[in-house]
Amino acid sequence: MAREVDPSLTEGIREFLPCPTPDAWVAEALKQEETLLIDHAHCERKAAATAMKLMHDHAEWDELQDKMSRLAREELRHFEQVLAIIRRRGYRYRRIAPSRYAAGLREGVRAGAREKLVDLLVCGAFIEARSCERFERLAPELDEEIGGFYYRLLRSEARHFRDYLHLAEQFNQAPVDDRVVAFAELEAQLITRPDSQFRFHSGPPRPVQDCRPALP
């Protein structure tokens, strides 16, 4: 079993997120180690790609370049580390369908250029915060290799959601509390609504329907 997580590492994250991960999701994650790791690797790779796209689209913004280049390097390094665990365990890294989570959050992104960037940055904050919250939930439950790895990820990635929020407020030149509230409601629905497939950011598993014939 991995060591207990220091609560100070997630200070601010639990307050930022609208709800905790359901216990049913944690129980399902412990049953689906292979899918958990493969989808986690995809999440790390996509997080790096998102940071690099922001850098490409906003080359004139120095602070964004600095924060996103560091974030992209860290996410790619974490991708490599998850990939190494996958291979050591005899699993095959492969493409799998993504969860509804990131796409669901982006349904709330506004269309205007300025509004879109603010909303994408707020979405990034939620994705990073939820990832850390799940590392915290899983680290004490998994074996030493994966649990210890998730504990270390929590230590290194807890800063990411604050970076996204800071950039959103800087670009908006004002607090973004209203957008946080709007996305918090959407995020809570995505995290608590039963999901038909298990993924790193999925909701709790959908209950299996009882297909037995009704008694006469």
Results as ranks from 00 to 15, higher is better:
A174S: 14
Y150C: 08
G104Y: 02
E44P: 01
H78M: 03
R100Q: 13
E4T: 14
A174E: 06
K116Q: 13
D163C: 07
R212I: 10
A103P: 02
Y101L: 02
E185I: 12
L190Y: 11
F16R: 09
E34W: 14
C123W: 04
W61A: 03
P204M: 06
F16E: 08
R87D: 15
D57W: 02
L153M: 13
Y164E: 00
T21F: 08
A125V: 11
F198R: 03
T10D: 09
P213M: 07
R88G: 13
F161P: 06
E74G: 01
I191T: 13
C132K: 03
V176R: 04
P7Q: 12
L37E: 09
T10A: 14
V82G: 11
P205L: 00
A41G: 09
T192E: 12
Y150N: 02
S202P: 09
E80Q: 11
F149S: 05
E185Q: 11
A125N: 03
V109N: 02
L117G: 06
V118C: 05
L167I: 08
E141W: 01
E133Q: 14
V5M: 10
A103H: 06
G90M: 08
R92Q: 14
E136M: 09
H166V: 08
P194H: 05
P216W: 00
V122Q: 05
A158N: 12
F135K: 01
G148H: 10
Q65Y: 09
R77G: 12
I191D: 00
T192K: 14
A113H: 04
G147W: 05
L138T: 07
A102W: 02
R212T: 15
R89A: 10
E28S: 10
A48Y: 02
R162L: 08
M1N: 13
K53Q: 12
F126P: 14
A188T: 07
E144Q: 15
P98C: 00
Q32A: 10
F161M: 10
C19T: 07
Y91R: 03
A184V: 09
S131Y: 02
